[in-house]
Structure formats: structure tokens, C-alpha cells
Amino acid sequence: MERNNLYLLTLSGLMALSTVSMAALGQQDLDVYVSLFVISYFATSAIFSPRRRTFDFLGAGLFVVFSIIVALRVIAILGV
């Protein structure tokens, strides 16, 4: 199978699995879902290294979102 197809299938599979398993666990926090999506995206990209037409804007955007989520969690833990 072509590597790009495998990349998309793996990414879709991991995201579907994350969503179904978190929904089954009754998770109602969107941050958790998004964090798992970000990890799935970077893991899949690292494994398959797909060729892209442009700079990885999606990766950059997801990284920023993930950083914000982590920062908010840290702030909540520190109670600032």
C-alpha cells in the first residue's frame, strides 16, 4: 500500500479509536480528546514522514493548541 494512504488510514484509525475509547469512558472534557488527536498526529507523522506540499501548518497549529492546553492545566494545578 502507498505510504501516504497508509499514513491517512493510520491517522484516521487512531483518531477514531481515541474518540470511541474516550466516549466509552464517559470523558466530557474536549481538551483530552484534542490532546490525544495531537499525539496521534505527531506520532503518525513521525512514523510515516509523508511528503507535503507546504510547511506543516497543521502540525504547528496543533502544537500551539497543545501548548495552550498544557499551560492551562499547569496553571490550574498551581492554582495561580
Binding site: N4, M15, T19, D29, Y33, F37, R52, D56
Partner: peptide, 21 residues
């Protein structure tokens, strides 16, 4: 929330697909 997450997942896969040559 799970359906919202499913939608976001679709958005991510869609953009990832758009970025492929």
C-alpha cells in the same frame, strides 16, 4: 463532546489529506 471531538478529528484528517501532494 464526543461528537464534537469526532468532528475535530475529521477536520484534522481532512487538512492532513489536503496537505499531501
Amino acid at each position: 463532546i464526543p461528537l464534537t471531538a469526532l468532528g475535530l478529528g475529521s477536520v484534522i484528517v481532512g487538512i492532513a489529506s489536503l496537505m499531501l501532494p
